[in-house]
Computed example of a mutant assay.
Amino acid sequence: MKVGLISSDPGHPVLAATAALLEQRGHEVEAVSPEGTESARPVAELADVYLLKARTPRALALAGELERRGAPVVNSAAATELCQDRMRMADLARAAGLPFAATAAAGRLSELADAAYPFVVKSRRSRRHDLVARVDGPARLRELAERWPEEPVVTQPFVPGTGWDQKLWVIDGQVFAARRRSELASASGESGRAQDWEPPAGRAALALRVGEVFGLDVYGVDLLDGPAESVIVDVNAFPGVRGRPGAPEALAALAERVAAERGRAPAGRGL
C-alpha cells in the first residue's frame, strides 16, 4: 500500500509517527507538498490513500484533483474546505441540532460596530495564526481593528464557563481529549499547558456526532461549559493531536482501512 501525506510539514510529530508505523508494516509513505504547485500534475502515480493535513488553498485544490482522479483523501477536500469558513460551519452545525455557539458574520474587523461586551471575535476563515480574541470594550476593539483592519470576521458571545477549554480530537471514531486554561478567560491572555482529561460519555458522543454531520474522519472539537449545556465553539479538520498516546496508531489504522475499503482500478500515469 502507498500512502500520500499532503502536508508542507511531513515532520509534524503525529505525521512522522504515523509514517514510521506504516513503513514498519511494509507500506510506502510519500510526502506530497502542495506549495509551489498549481495543480496535481506533479503526482504522476496515485497513492492508495492520501491524508490531507495541509489546509491552504493549494492543498485543497490538489486534494480535489486527486479525488477527481479516483484517489480517496482523508478528510475530503470538500469537508476540509467547509471547516475553513466559520460561518458555514456554524450554520451547518446549528441546522443539524448541534449546540454550536451563536455565530454572526460581521464583515471586516475595521467595520465592526460596538456590540454587547464582552464578545469573541474570530477570523471568518480558519487558518494558522488567525484572529481569535476576546473583546471587553471599545478600546480593545479599536486595538484589534488597527492590527487587522481588512480581516473578515465573525463574532460569538463570550461564554465564561469554567475557564477551561475542552479539546476533543477524533480519529476514525476514537476520541482523544485534553483540557487547558482558556486564554480568552484569562485577563493576561495566557493559557496553560494541556492536561489529561477523560470526557464524560455525553461529550464524547457529541464529538462523534460532529464527525457525522461534517463528514470528517480526523478532526477536533473545541467545547466550553455553557450555562445549560456544552457549547461547541470550533471544529477543525485534521488538527495536530499532539501528545495523545495512541493517535498515530489510530491514524495509521485509518489509512489502512480507507485504502482497503475504497479499492479502485489502477490509475494511469499523468492526467
Results as ranks from 00 to 15, higher is better:
S186R: 11
R127I: 02
I232Y: 10
G137T: 13
R242Q: 10
R124W: 12
F176K: 10
E151T: 08
L223M: 13
G189Q: 03
G243A: 08
D130I: 07
P200S: 02
A133H: 02
P152F: 07
L216A: 00
P245K: 15
S126M: 10
E151M: 12
G161S: 12
G243E: 11
F158W: 06
P227V: 14
A187D: 14
S230W: 12
G220F: 13
W169V: 05
F176R: 12
G173Y: 03
E151W: 07
Q156M: 13
W148E: 00
V221E: 04
A133M: 01
D234Y: 03
A204V: 02
E190G: 01
D165P: 13
F238H: 07
R179L: 15
R242G: 10
V154C: 05
T155Q: 09
V159I: 12
I171D: 02
D234K: 03
D136L: 01
G240V: 03
W169R: 11
L208Y: 06
S186I: 04
R193P: 10
A201F: 02
E150M: 00
E212C: 02
R193E: 01
D130K: 13
A187I: 04
S191C: 08
F158C: 04
A194G: 14
K122P: 04
L223K: 15
R124V: 13
P138G: 06
L184T: 12
R180A: 12
L208R: 15
A205W: 03
G240A: 14
W148Y: 15
W169N: 05
F158A: 11
R209N: 00
D234H: 13
L206D: 15
S186H: 07
A205V: 07
A194P: 10
I232C: 10
A228L: 08
R124F: 10
P152M: 00
E198G: 06
L216R: 00
R127W: 06
P200T: 01
P149A: 02
K122A: 12
E183V: 04
N236Q: 02
R142Y: 09
A228M: 10
E229P: 00
V175Y: 11
P160G: 09
W148R: 02
G220P: 06
V233R: 04
L144E: 05
E146D: 11
L224T: 03
D225F: 09
V233A: 04
S123A: 07
N236T: 13
G161F: 00
F214M: 07
R179W: 14
E229M: 00
V154Y: 00
S188D: 02
R193M: 08
Q174K: 06
P138D: 06
E143G: 06
S182F: 09
F158D: 04
G240R: 04
D222T: 07
V159A: 03
R193C: 01
P152H: 03
S191M: 10
A201S: 06
R203K: 00
E151N: 01
G215E: 12
V213S: 08
G202E: 01
P245N: 14
V175P: 01
G220M: 03
L131C: 07
Q156N: 10
W197T: 06
R179C: 15
A205M: 07
G137C: 10
D172V: 12
R125A: 12
